[in-house]
Write a protein that binds this DNA or RNA. Structure first.
Length: 253
DNA sequence: CCCAAGTCCTGGTTGC
DNA sequence: TGCAACCAGGACTTGG
């Protein structure tokens, strides 16, 4: 159970605590901690990187936008420093007792490795008026998809971001489900998308940005049909798509 | 001035 | 008409 507690209370538990497990849930990083001594409860550090957050292990230099640092010891007693950097301050940390930050309970299944299928997607899409783009960004349906991957997924699925959820045929839903898993898998295989800030815990950049088909390519030619890619703002987010092979009208097929 | 990887909050709209 | 669910857009923040 989640218990209310004051920051200074949590602070007093941290020294001597052990990281008992780590997990990723959607875009959240979760550390399970057990306090030192004989206490049996657990507490959690829930981390969200926001847009520009970085989590670094033993960084070579203090960096420019350090927000917090955890000093730890490894199994052999070697020092381990975990630093959180975040230029735009959109990242979040939550320290809670008993359960992770409450917002995690609201997340849909993990879009990449979660237990869901085209049937689940069909049920979630059914009857909704919102755009496909807004749907993919809404972490309550599937968790883990952001603005870059949603545009890429929709291009590969040949679906217009402006289409309404309820307008998809079952063939289109199956296609979308396949591309969600495939594109996120590619992103992970290529170690992420380093447009400007993203690095892994070792400070290394990913490679996915080299394989982008639409994101950041407004006005350039579609790799599939050669038409000019266009930009629209959909539910407040910049959205790039091909007006030719991602048509607004449902394709007759 | 424009734009940017995310989420929360507010206020308006839709439909039962 | 009432109400809840749904949905779009602004706020937040720093920098290129």
């Amino acid at each position: 159970m989640l218990r209310d507690c004051r920051p200074e209370q949590l602070k007093s538990w941290l020294p001597g605590a052990k990281v008992s497990s780590t997990e990723r849930v959607g875009k959240f990083i979760l550390l399970e901690l057990k306090p030192g001594g004989s206490s049996s409860f657990v507490f959690y550090l829930t981390i969200h990187l926001g847009m520009t957050g970085q989590l670094l292990i033993n960084p070579r230099d203090p960096g420019k936008h350090g927000r917090f640092v955890f000093e730890m010891r490894g199994r052999e007693g070697e020092p381990i420093c975990l630093q959180f950097r975040d230029m735009r301050k959109f990242g979040r940390l939550h320290l809670t007792v008993g359960t992770p930050a409450p917002r995690l309970a609201l997340l849909g299944p993990d879009a990449w490795v979660g237990e869901w299928d085209a049937g689940y997607l069909a049920r979630e899409l059914c009857g909704r008026r919102a755009s496909l783009k807004a749907f993919l960004l809404d972490q309550r349906h599937l968790s883990g998809i952001g603005n870059i991957y949603s545009d890429e997924i929709l291009w590969w699925s040949r679906l217009c971001p402006l289409r309404s959820c309820g307008s998809l045929s079952s063939d289109e839903i199956v296609r979308l489900a396949q591309e969600i898993r495939r594109i996120l898998g590619e992103g992970v295989r290529l170690l992420g998308c380093s447009i400007s800030d993203f690095v892994d815990t070792q400070g290394s950049s990913g490679e996915f940005q080299k394989w982008l088909r639409v994101y950041g390519r407004q006005g350039k030619k579609c790799f599939r049909c050669g038409a000019r890619l266009v930009r629209a703002v959909v539910s407040g987010r910049g959205t790039i798509y091909c007006p030719e092979c991602q048509p607004k009208n449902a394709s007759p097929e």
